[in-house]
Every structure is written in C-alpha cells, then in structure tokens.
Simulated assay, not measured.
Amino acid sequence: MYLFLVTTLIGFLSVHVSVLTKYISKIFNRIPQAERTLLEERRELLKQQAALSVSRDFVKHSKLQRKINAIDEQLKESGSKRNGNNFIYNIGINYGCNILLSVVMIFLSVYYRKVPVFIVETKYNLWPFGGLISFPNDVENSVSVHFWMVSCSSVARLLKN
C-alpha cells in the first residue's frame, strides 16, 4: 500500500512540478520591506496629489510629482535587481525539484524493482502484456514499479491537458 501511494504521488508530482515550484518561488521571492514602504509612500503621495488642483496648487502638485518620480526610480532600480535574482531562484528551484523527483524515481525503481506495486486477481489475465507490465518481477499478474510510474505520469499528463 505504501509503495502504491508513494509511486502514484511521485508520478503525478513529476508532471505537476511547475505548480509546486510556483508556490516555493513565492516564498523565496517576496518583496522586501524597503520596497513595501516605498510603495506605501508612493500611494500616499498619489492620494495627496489627486486631492490638489493642478491649476490652483501647481507648485505643491509639481513637488509631489518630483517625489513620486524619485520613488519610481528607486523602485525600478530595486525591482530590476530583484527580478534578476528571482529569475535565478526560479530556475534553480524548478531544476532542483525536477532533479530531486528524478532521483527519488530512480531510487524507487532500483530499490523496489523486484517488489510488485500490487497484484491483479488471477481471474483477470494480463496476457499478452503481463510480461511487460510486471517486467523485472517473477510474480504473475503483478504490476511493477516502473510500469506504474510510467502509467501515473501518462495519466497525469492527460489530466493536465
């Protein structure tokens, strides 16, 4: 039962690893507190600027606009640095998860190569594909880890599309 659940989970995760890495990337790629304070300050300045009339309070309006422009420049600079780092983190997380899942799949395939995931009842004959389905096993009507992982990955791809 344990082997059935683990191989099914790994088979589905191998296809949907992008969903997993998206959530992990959100954890690592948060906006820093300094940028949040700059964004909040920008919002406040925009509210103040919207309350002013351009024709009557042109001086105050233009001072606020200069402050907003300065904040925008700071946000662009810090955002470009952060986006460069985020790209590297996203690539690393994506490939790291794929490598980890591949290693786990190889380990399960090698370690449990002679252990059937489950055995089909004898009243259901798997002939002529029984040998392929239970390839390294000698147990009749059994499903091997290799075949089960490929089947789960195929079903997950079909469900994804």
Rank of each mutant, 00 (worst) to 15 (best):
Y95M: 13
V139E: 15
S55F: 09
I119G: 06
V103K: 02
L101E: 06
Y112C: 01
D57N: 14
A50D: 05
L101G: 02
E44Q: 12
I106M: 03
D57C: 10
K63P: 00
K67M: 11
G79Q: 11
K76L: 13
I93N: 02
I99W: 03
G130F: 04
Y112L: 00
R82G: 01
N83D: 14
I71S: 02
S151L: 11
S53G: 09
L45S: 02
S102Q: 10
L75C: 03
P128S: 12
L64E: 10
S142V: 04
L100R: 00
L126T: 04
F129W: 11
L46Q: 13
V117K: 08
Y112H: 12
D72T: 12
G92T: 10
E77M: 01
N137P: 08
G84S: 14
G131Y: 02
F135N: 08
S80V: 12
P116K: 07
A50T: 11
D72C: 11
N85A: 14
I106K: 09
N98F: 14
V120L: 08
N98V: 07
E77H: 09
V117D: 03
L52K: 02
V115H: 11
L126G: 07
S80C: 05
K81D: 05
L52W: 04
T122Y: 09
L64F: 15
V150Q: 09
L64D: 07
S109N: 08
G131E: 11
I93M: 01
K63Q: 10
A50Y: 08
I99S: 09
Q48E: 15
K67F: 06
N141R: 15
G92N: 00
V59T: 12
E121I: 04
S55D: 09
S144T: 04
V120T: 14
V155A: 13
S102E: 02
S153E: 08
I99N: 07
N125M: 00
A70E: 10
V143C: 08
E44A: 12
H146W: 14
I99D: 01
L52F: 07
W127E: 12
K123H: 10
S134F: 03
N69S: 13
G84A: 12
R66S: 03
G130Y: 07
R113Y: 14
L100N: 07
R82F: 03
R42V: 03
Y95C: 08
R42P: 05
N125C: 01
I119F: 06
K47V: 08
F135L: 15
P128K: 05
E44W: 06
I71M: 06
S78R: 04
N125K: 06
F58Y: 10
K81F: 03
W127T: 14
D138V: 11
Y112V: 06
L64A: 13
K60D: 06
W127G: 05
L108E: 02
Y111L: 06
K60P: 05
A70T: 13
G84H: 13
G79H: 11
F107L: 06
N94T: 13
P116D: 03
W127L: 06
V150A: 13
S62G: 00
H61F: 10
I91V: 11
N83P: 04
Q48Y: 13
S142P: 09
A156M: 07
N83Y: 04
V103D: 05
D72W: 15
Y89P: 07
L75Y: 14
F129D: 02
L108Q: 00
N137E: 06
E44V: 14
V143H: 04
I71A: 03
H146I: 12
V145L: 03
D57A: 05
N98L: 14
